[in-house]
Design a protein around this nucleic acid. Structure first.
Lengths: 181, 181
DNA sequence: TCACTCATGTAATTGGTTACATGATTAG
DNA sequence: CTAATCATGTAACCAATTACATGAGTGA
């Protein structure tokens, strides 16, 4: 994608997590290029600004996998989760399942904690806070439902694949040994 | 509340929107105090750090109302919405309804746009992006459901109050003329 | 004894936004 | 004729996090 494309895509999810400005997208792309994690192809058209299409390199793919595999921090925000989700096609299916399960566990915990907070609120407590907490549990429930649905689909797919191909223990990553800073 | 309390409360919603660190909460509180928008009471206990409980002042309440009333920007994030929700008890009921309706309209638009984006995705499109977009529409639907529920409750309450008190055109704000920078 | 909760705060650094610059094309 | 879309980029500024400092009590 180009920087422009990235901005457009992220903007479509922006009401959920906010979306970065060009002032952070372009420099990030340049840094990635410098580090050899992405490559560029320039498409020039007459009387139009050239489109610079970035593609991930092998080194980039390796770095991405490393990033995506390290477990999300306990208090991870929706944004952190979504970013990993967007890049989830770079995970193996079991890897994606792990990610969704981690999220499920975290949101589940949060859901319980929020519900308890609401139950413990006094009658005369701040109504705005109660409203916000209620909103929180509602969204948490919805996310749990989505995660369960996706997780269900995934485990079905995994079972099918197992049946087809015998037992795959884990998909070995040939890039595992490459060093990268 | 104290800075510590604020942090704790926001942390409970933090998985949704992320929560600020002490390094931004305490300085913000100090600035608010300097501007006379909040006041402090210090509660000292033996061998314990003193608790500083902040309360909003009249000037603060006025500034807050001004902030809360100005319509949210078109692309407002969940965070901006939630912050207003938390402070919603400082709104009149019609004011709260307006806020929720604005959000409903925005999320509704986003929902349609996301659904169209998904429909327009090619078969071979990036699966991660599709997943993220699907997540987006799901959460959007959930939020719409919540907003409709709350909006329904609110309009009932408003009808009841009208019946009781006759016709209130709009609750006049006696602080409206106070100037504040 | 170690780690965590309570509770406040400051300084340095990082990261991001805002504002600017460029310029052709298309829709209202 | 104006505003918006396409498309890239830089520099100044601001807001936030991170890391530090302090210190008693509590539960494993």
């Amino acid at each position: 994608m180009s920087g422009y494309d990235i901005k457009r895509f992220l903007a479509s999810l922006g009401w959920l997590v906010g979306s970065p400005s060009y002032g952070s997208i372009y420099p990030a792309l340049h840094a990635l290029l410098e580090d050899g994690l992405v490559s560029v192809e320039v498409f020039s058209a007459l009387n139009k600004p050239p489109r610079k299409i970035y593609s991930i390199t092998d080194a980039g793919r390796y770095a991405l996998r490393k990033w995506i595999r390290k477990p999300v921090v306990a208090n991870a925000s929706l944004k952190a989760f979504l970013m990993r989700l967007i890049l989830a096609n770079n995970l193996t299916k079991p890897g994606l399942a792990t990610h969704l399960e981690q999220r499920r566990a975290q949101v589940g915990t949060r859901h319980v904690a929020l519900q308890r907070m609401i139950d413990e609120l006094q009658e005369d407590a701040d109504q705005g806070q109660r409203l916000a907490l209620e909103y929180g549990v509602f969204i948490a429930s919805a996310e749990l439902a989505w995660l369960d649905e996706k997780l269900g689909q995934l485990s079905e797919e995994l079972l099918l694949e197992e049946g087809e191909e015998g037992n795959i223990t884990y998909e070995g990553d040939p890039l595992e040994e490459v060093s990268l800073e």
